[in-house]
């Protein structure tokens, strides 16, 4: 689970640098997520990490009220979302600002910024999304 390890390392390193980097197949152009070493569709092993804007829409969401272990750093309740990133269709897990406790709407436009989530003794880079 080390941030700089694994097929998705460029994603985490990108967030640390303030950018959203996502993988695309160099052969057929398909966006690939979760990150993989080979495109299962065309067989290409050329993975091209490409910058995308932190802009998207809400695909689904939940608002958590129960204090589960590992969420101690988050104020209750908090909203987690699945966001569809514009211009690629990849869905990312993230958090949504929820100041007025208004239920998210699927398809709603959101923009993101890089923040962090403290889990035990680590700060995991996180896209924090806001409406509009």
């Amino acid at each position: 689970m080390d941030v700089i390890d694994g097929a998705d390392a460029p994603y985490w390193n990108g967030l640390v640098e303030g950018r959203l980097m996502l993988p695309r197949c160099g052969g057929c152009g398909d966006w690939l997520w979760p990150a993989v070493s080979r495109c299962g569709k065309c067989g290409s092993e050329a993975i091209e990490w490409t910058a995308r804007a932190m802009a998207g829409t809400i695909f689904s969401w939940t608002r958590t009220w129960h204090r589960f272990g590992f969420t101690e750093s988050l104020d209750l309740p908090f909203v987690s979302i699945v966001a569809t990133v514009d211009d690629c269709g990849i869905r990312l897990l993230g958090r949504l600002d929820d100041p007025d406790r208004i239920d998210p709407v699927m398809g709603e436009t959101i923009t993101g910024r890089v923040g962090a989530t403290r889990v035990e003794n680590r700060d995991i880079p996180t896209i924090i999304w806001s409406r509009g």
Binding site: M1, H66, T71, F78, L93, I124
Partner: peptide, 14 residues
């Protein structure tokens, strides 16, 4: 994994 932890998604209920 870190994608889930970062989103506060840590339990089957979520």
């Amino acid at each position: 994994n870190d994608h889930m932890l970062a989103a506060g998604i840590v339990a089957p209920a979520q």
